[in-house]
């Protein structure tokens, strides 16, 4: 497991994508959830831009993140001199009542993001999603153009090949940029270890339980695990066939709940 030469290719490609976004999409912003993926991405952005993060980091805040997550956010924002923007999400009672309960809770972030988009009109938003997380994310592009309302139309996605990305944005629309799209959960952990990237210690097991994926308090549950180190997490992931987002209630409420969230603009 010490050979990480396959990670180099992923790293170089992510750096290339970040530089492409920074060169072609202004203003640019990044969504930071403080989870392992977007924090690893933040590190990659610093690598790409020689130690700096010269654009805002947006946290879509429902007020329901775990305490450790908020503490981690404030610590890293200070240490890495981040331009942190906390975007307060509208309350749950304003969401579409037709959605299942946990999906409704998650939809708050979509609305928070829409508010940010409307107010700041960024051309590009960097997001740390990965194809292997969830089946509909597997259909994504690295540069994914969104309509003015932020919606995703999977049928009319532009072709994307040989590193020629959709960097031309119609007025009022924006592009979601996904530098980690080809990474897997195990890649993220191996990279986090190799680069000594900070992470919230809720990912490590305490009393036989750990968080595999970090979401809001009310819609995320920890899994049974004894993994007390990154190596142990990697070993656990090699053995398991449970999906990563099994602890995310909203993904599993109905067959298409996540697809409906994403079509409406969820990450």
């Amino acid at each position: 497991m010490t050979d990480t030469h396959d990670l180099d290719a992923l790293e170089h490609s992510a750096i290339t994508i970040v530089r492409e976004a920074y060169a072609t999409l202004r203003p640019l912003a990044m969504l930071w959830s403080m989870g392992k993926d977007s924090t690893a991405l933040l590190w990659l952005i610093r690598k790409a831009l020689f130690g700096e993060v010269p654009f805002p980091l947006v946290q879509l805040d429902t007020g329901l993140e775990l305490d450790e997550v908020y503490a981690f956010r404030d610590m890293l924002a200070r240490e890495w001199k981040l331009d942190l923007r906390v975007e307060l999400c509208p309350p749950e009672h304003e969401m579409d009542p037709m959605l299942p309960p946990a999906t409704r809770a998650a939809a708050r972030k979509t609305e928070g993001l829409k508010n940010y988009l409307q107010r700041e009109s960024p051309q590009g938003i960097i997001v740390g999603i990965r194809r292997d997380e969830q089946a509909t994310r597997a259909k994504e592009r690295i540069f994914s153009p969104r309509s003015a309302g932020g919606t995703w139309d999977v049928r009319t996605q532009p072709p994307e090949l040989w590193g020629y990305y959709a960097t031309d944005v119609p007025h009022g629309a924006h592009v979601r940029v996904h530098p980690l799209l080809h990474w897997t959960e195990i890649d993220i952990w191996r990279y986090t270890k190799r680069e000594a990237i900070p992470y919230v210690d809720l990912y490590l097991a305490r009393d036989g339980m750990r968080y595999r994926s970090l979401g809001e308090k009310n819609i995320t549950v920890p899994i049974r695990s004894d993994a007390g180190s990154i190596d142990a997490i990697i070993a656990e992931l090699h053995a398991t066939r449970d999906p990563e987002r099994a602890g995310r209630v909203m993904d599993n409420e109905s067959e298409d709940s996540f697809e409906r969230l994403r079509a409406a603009g969820y990450m």
């Binding site: 292997d132 089946a135 509909t136 597997a138 259909k139 080809h182 897997t184 298409d256 697809e259």
Partner: peptide, 21 residues
């Protein structure tokens, strides 16, 4: 397993590329 979109399952076609590792 791959055709995860509603429309794909209903029409029994694949609309966009999917990846599996």
């Amino acid at each position: 397993v791959l055709d995860s979109l509603q429309e794909e399952r209903d029409q029994a076609i694949t609309i966009d590329t999917t990846r599996l590792w």
